Simulated scan of single mutants.
Amino acid sequence: MGFDPRQWTSASQPSQRQRVTSNVESLLVENDALRHEVRRLRAELERLRLHQVRENRHRSKESFNDATEVSGITAFHIDAWGQVLSQQVGWGDLRLRSLIALIERLNRKSFHPKLNLYQRLDRLLPGFGSELHAAMAGSLTKKRGAVLAAFAFYGVRASEWLNEDPQRVVQELLKHQESTQSSRRTRSDRRSTDRKRSGSSDERLAAYTILGLQYGSTEYDIKKAYRRLVKQHHPDLGGSTEDFHKISEAYQFLME
């Protein structure tokens, strides 16, 4: 407990035991009051700190929700964005097969390379990728491919760039149309590589078409379509052998 002068008595005069009543007692009372005030201030600071932490978390959550809020992407938005992009400088230099290759390369570099673009966007914002997938239903044209590549590049914020600065979107797609490594090769090597990539992209697009799927369909959709088509075109069930082989090759190509 320590020494308390209020309880001190003189050893030379034990009979009197006169309590010390000088300024020491008033100082001790003041000291107790100060200690109480310090404890109160510390408690108040801790309360304010916790309140600030909660406020920061709330603001961060609101900021994220505002940044990723989706007003509803439909086929109308996809076609409108594609039309705007087609009017920008440099549009003629974009190629559909190169855009498809760009989407695949960005997916391979993502946090989960086994996911397709729609699944990756769903991980970032639940429901976003599914909504985009529904809006992209139909044939994959150059305009739609450019919009899809924008979402692969910008993620859930692509709609902001498509609305506010479509020219920059086209320039970014042109810049990333070829990989960094291909830009260091000679022109002959680059042309050879482009031909290989073009063939690969064309084959992938053709494989989706054979299975009756749109580009970027999930592995589940590919397997489901394959099983359905096998039952229809298997030679043992009266189907065409040629069609059956095309379906099998398309399935194997997409599942590699």
Rank of each mutant, 00 (worst) to 15 (best):
S60I: 00
V29Q: 15
K142D: 01
N56K: 12
E69T: 03
H133K: 15
V84R: 15
Q87K: 15
D79H: 12
R42I: 13
A149F: 03
S139F: 05
H133N: 14
L94I: 06
E30Y: 09
N116V: 04
A75Q: 14
L117W: 02
S63T: 08
A137P: 00
L124R: 12
E131H: 01
K142I: 12
H133E: 15
A150L: 02
H58A: 12
R47C: 08
E131N: 07
E131I: 04
A134K: 14
L34W: 11
E131G: 12
R57T: 01
I73N: 05
S63Y: 01
S63A: 13
L50Y: 01
L117P: 01
L27Q: 10
L125H: 12
S98N: 10
G72R: 06
S71P: 00
S71M: 10
I103S: 08
I78N: 02
S98L: 02
R35F: 06
R49Y: 09
A149Q: 01
Y118S: 06
P126T: 07
Y118Q: 04
S110A: 14
E44C: 07
R42D: 15
V147T: 05
A152V: 04
A101Y: 04
L28H: 05
E62P: 00
Y118W: 12
A67L: 11
L125W: 05
E104S: 09
E55L: 14
Y118M: 11
A80P: 00
L132P: 03
E37L: 14
G90P: 07
A75L: 08
F64Q: 06
K142T: 09
F151Y: 15
A33F: 10
L132K: 05
E55C: 04
G72T: 09
G82R: 05
V70K: 01
K61C: 01
I73R: 05
G72A: 07
S98I: 00
V38C: 09
G92W: 03
L140A: 02
L121S: 03
R35D: 14
